[in-house]
Simulated assay, not measured.
Amino acid sequence: MESNIDSPAPEASSPAVLHPALAPLSFLLGTWRGQGEGGYPTIHSFSYGEELHFSNLPNKPVIGYTQKTWKLSSGEPMHAESGYWRPKPDGTIEVVIAQSTGLVEVQKGRYNTNEKVIQLQSEIVGNASKVKEIRRSFQLVDGNLCYDVEMATHSLTLQPHLKAVLKKI
Rank of each mutant, 00 (worst) to 15 (best):
E94M: 07
E50G: 13
K68M: 15
Y40M: 12
L145M: 13
E76R: 08
V131G: 01
S13L: 10
G126Q: 07
V117D: 02
K130L: 15
V62L: 15
Y84S: 08
G36Y: 03
K130G: 04
S137K: 07
G83Y: 04
S45F: 07
P61M: 11
L145T: 06
S3P: 00
E37S: 10
I169R: 03
D90Y: 05
N4C: 14
L103G: 00
P20H: 05
V165K: 09
G143N: 12
L25N: 03
A152P: 02
N144Y: 14
G39F: 08
T69W: 02
N144S: 13
H53W: 02
M78A: 10
P160N: 09
K168G: 05
S7I: 13
G91K: 12
L140S: 09
P24T: 09
G36E: 10
Q159K: 06
W32D: 01
S122H: 04
V106D: 01
S82C: 12
L103T: 11
A128G: 13
E37W: 01
L120D: 09
P58S: 15
R33W: 03
S47W: 00
S7Q: 13
G36H: 00
L52S: 03
K68L: 06
Y84Q: 03
T153P: 02
G109Y: 05
L29K: 06
Q35S: 13
E37V: 11
L145E: 06
L22W: 00
V141N: 06
I118T: 03
E50V: 08
T113I: 08
S7C: 05
T31H: 03
Q121A: 14
R135W: 13
I124H: 07
F27N: 12
K68Q: 14
F46H: 10
L22G: 01
G83F: 10
I63Y: 01
V117E: 10
V117Q: 00
R33Y: 03
Y111F: 15
E133V: 11
S129P: 00
K60L: 12
K168P: 10
R135L: 12
S73G: 00
E50R: 00
V96I: 14
L57V: 12
N112E: 13
